[in-house]
Amino acid sequence: MAKTKEVPSQEYETMEMGKFYFLNNNFAEAVAQFESVLKINPANAEAYYNIGLIKESANKIEEAKAMYLQALSIKKDYKIASEKLNNLMGIEKDE
């Protein structure tokens, strides 16, 4: 029998765990959770974006850019990822 729609998917639950750790400053565990999300669904742009945020927080700018680029390659209209990438590349918002 097929699962009912109300049951949260493993991808969703893992993503929520990642967000929980992120908001509680536990960045190492948050990255582990977001990477688990990507193992379940390699096309999860939000997971790439969140890892990018954590890399940026740790001043790992090149790694952060790579993550934002990955997010944008999956979701072309990902506004906040685009803003973060532009910001790291020194591109003004209105240019």
Partner: peptide
């Protein structure tokens, strides 16, 4: 943030 997305 206001749009419900994680941010720093």
């Amino acid at each position: 943030n206001d749009e419900g997305q994680n941010d720093i």
